[in-house]
Amino acid sequence: MEPAGAAMPREFAALEDFPTLLRRRGLMSQTPLSPGPVDRAQFTETHATTILAFKFSGGVLVAGDRRATAGNTVVYDRADKVLEIDRHSIMAIAGVPATAWEMARVLEHSFQYFRRTQLQEMSVDGKVRALSKLLRDNFGFVMQGVGVVVPIFATYDFASHEPGPRLYFYDAMGAQFEVTEYAATGSGSPGVRGILYYENKWGKKPLAKLREDEAVTVALRALDTAAEADTATGGVDRSGKIFPIIKVVSQDGISTLAEEKIAAVFKRSVA
């Protein structure tokens, strides 16, 4: 008879997370060991820029412009940087879309994989941490000068003793910062932060008290201001009628604002 425990460690199923599963199956790219920094003369990566989020009376509003750039070139003017991860979670991205979209995909599958295998929804802390780990795993690329991603994560916490919307932003190494009012990242974010600070402190009412149309007005004005000084931010393309993507996270899930609705607010209070 075999000694008890000989095969035990391997036999007990570990609660493996989805990225670990992908690595075991060789389906997730690894950071190359040390190829040295990327030569900028040889390669210019695509960047997506300027996202913002703030809490208002109806939940969390998350908005992003539509521009993707590589150096001085506009690559795409209809990029979607506000990505739905599950029924109550949004990841908005500034940085390199190639990496960010892949992260969003991993994240989306991670949450579903957890729910399906563990038969319960992943906690908000677990979700926030999952994105943090992806960012840290990506840091090797960042140090080589490619693939930097600085996301915002918005979700709704039902399990807390004070249920409500939650908002986080990250740095490129994966540190997460929970914010109570607003967050903005990307090249156009300094201007946006200024506006959100100003509105929150000296505006007609604090951001948390805004109605939806008022919140949309603030978001559009902020992105328009960012685009004024930052060529990498698309703002609102008036001739092409390309409007930012705006989504709201609330108790009922995620709602995407219709383009006509955004256009109407834009015409009334921004243009």
Binding site: L21, L22, R105, H109, Q112, Y113, T117
Partner: peptide
């Protein structure tokens, strides 16, 4: 779940 998830992901 593992088979379906990796297929759906890749």
């Amino acid at each position: 779940i593992e088979l379906a998830s990796t297929e759906g992901f890749t």
